[in-house]
């Protein structure tokens, strides 16, 4: 009973303070720069309590940009495993959701959802900061409402 109350409170508070960790798995820089722009003053994601953090161990949300290449697969999986539950994954840009123009390359293993579960997909090449912001807020909603993410 008491634990449930704590859980309810945690769920509620999660919505207003998202900590985000960003992994580049082979992107062309375009989406990464837009993420940088998102956290600077014009788009200012911090007004929603969204913050970029330096370690996956602190993060609620994983932002992934780019198709998964052979060499960046292991760092991606390691970062995902390090994140505490509940966690959600947002894939940014068309390469991370389908491979994009790089799909037929020998070094690209595939889109991100072949390796880790993805909750929000953001299209665009490169994705606009407003779209990334909307995706992050959607991920916050999912993190708050989805029952599966809280069963641990």
């Amino acid at each position: 009973m008491f634990l449930d109350a704590i859980k309810q409170f945690l769920r509620y508070s999660q919505k207003k303070s998202l900590w985000v960790f960003h992994v580049n798995t082979g992107s062309c820089n375009g989406c990464d720069i837009e993420i940088l722009a998102l956290f600077s003053s014009k788009y200012d994601a911090e007004r929603f309590g969204i913050k970029l953090v330096g370690s996956p161990k602190h993060a609620d949300i994983l932002l992934v940009t780019g198709p998964v290449t052979t060499k960046s697969r292991d760092p991606l999986l390691r970062a995902y495993d390090m994140m505490p539950k509940p966690k959600a994954v947002v894939s940014v840009g068309v390469c991370s959701l389908s491979g994009g123009v790089f799909a037929k390359s020998y070094n690209v293993l595939g889109p991100v959802d072949n390796f880790i579960p993805v909750h929000v997909y953001i299209g665009g090449c490169s994705a606009h900061p407003n779209m990334i912001l909307e995706g992050l807020l959607r991920a916050a909603q999912i993190l708050c409402e989805e029952e599966e993410l809280w069963s641990f």
Binding site: C28, F102, S105
Partner: peptide, 30 residues
């Protein structure tokens, strides 16, 4: 870590598709 084999992709696409691929070598100097 971000090797996407652009030169290989260019050798499999025609010139007008190549311009689109080449644009995505780098998102800053696109």
């Amino acid at each position: 870590y971000v090797h996407r084999a652009i030169e290989f992709l260019l050798a499999n696409k025609d010139f007008y598709q190549g311009i689109i691929v080449v644009e995505r070598v780098c998102g800053i100097c696109s």
